[in-house]
């Protein structure tokens, strides 16, 4: 049954993506994310004093040497708030948004199947995570290429790499950031099954992202830190060390998988037992 319905499920996934990416809102958020490195690049390029060394966002002073760092700074700046914000909007909207429009009852009566719909919705929000991270990379790369030289890049360890490798590292960072957001997406999916008011689910998801980071900053709670989904978010910079510190990538992936499993299971429990009254 599941196997024979695989092509149909794939088509539903494509349809889900087309609904997501035919929304004005989705493109507005992606454009806003892409604008962050653009603004950073413009500020660095046209500020009279030049970038201050060791001040402001990390890697800011690197931009003048290698424009690709506009994307790096963009990713680092967007990680704590802007990216969770947009992912919270998309993930919180998954089920609650359909319920709010009333289309949820028609999808289920089609019948899309509750589990299938849940999986497709989650995968689509994961694709948005990729798109969101890539939006920052694209914005940063274009800004960097136009405003700055694409020369040698200095890593955190003081080693120097070629522009090509630097771009590879930037893409790796985008991958890391995407993985970082997958757990939050699962939380958003669960929140979305709890309500018919999408704004509520979005707000709950975003608030959780902020709370997690605040808890992560409290030294008194260091026993809790390894369990917080935001714990490895800023370790994205480990990809800029030489040799690359893959440890945080692995730990982060494992942590996010745990969150996906837990909140995916909770979303499954909630959504398959839910009375659809909207």
């Amino acid at each position: 049954m599941l196997l024979s319905s695989a092509p149909a499920s794939a088509r539903l996934f494509v349809s889900e993506l087309s609904v997501l990416f035919r929304r004005w809102r989705t493109w507005t958020m992606l454009a806003a994310l892409a604008a962050v490195p653009v603004l950073i690049g413009l500020a660095v390029r046209f500020s009279p004093k030049g970038p201050p060394s060791g001040r402001g966002p990390a890697f800011l002073d690197q931009i003048t040497h290698n424009g690709l760092f506009a994307g790096v700074v963009g990713l680092v700046v967007c990680t704590p708030l802007f990216l969770p914000l947009t992912v919270g909007v998309v993930a919180g909207d998954t089920i609650a948004g359909e319920a709010n429009l009333g289309t949820l009852r028609y999808l289920l009566a089609a019948p899309a199947g509750r589990v299938r719909l849940l999986v497709v919705k989650y995968l689509a929000s994961a694709v948005f995570c990729v798109a969101a991270a890539l939006a920052v990379v694209v914005g940063g790369t274009l800004t960097g290429a136009v405003l700055f030289p694409l020369g040698q890049a200095t890593l955190l360890s003081g080693d120097t790499i070629s522009p090509g490798e630097a771009f590879g590292r930037l893409l790796l960072m985008a991958g890391y950031v995407t993985v970082s957001l997958l757990g939050l997406s699962a939380i958003g999916l669960f929140a979305s099954t709890m309500t018919n008011v999408p704004v509520g689910a979005m707000a709950a998801t975003i608030v959780l992202a902020v709370v997690s980071q605040v808890l992560d900053a409290l030294d008194q709670l260091d026993w809790l830190h390894p369990w917080l989904f935001s714990d490895h978010w800023l370790s994205v910079a480990d990809l800029l060390r030489e040799p690359i510190a893959w440890g945080s990538f692995g730990e982060n992936t494992l942590l996010q998988l745990g969150y996906i499993a837990l909140f995916g299971a909770l979303a499954y429990g909630r959504f398959t037992t839910k009375d659809v009254l909207a």
């Binding site: 088509r11 349809s15 028609y106 999808l107 089609a110 019948p111 899309a112 299938r116 719909l117």
Partner: peptide, 8 residues
């Protein structure tokens, strides 16, 4: 199209 796609 969307609703018909949802029909397995």
């Amino acid at each position: 199209h969307r609703l018909d796609t949802a029909d397995l």
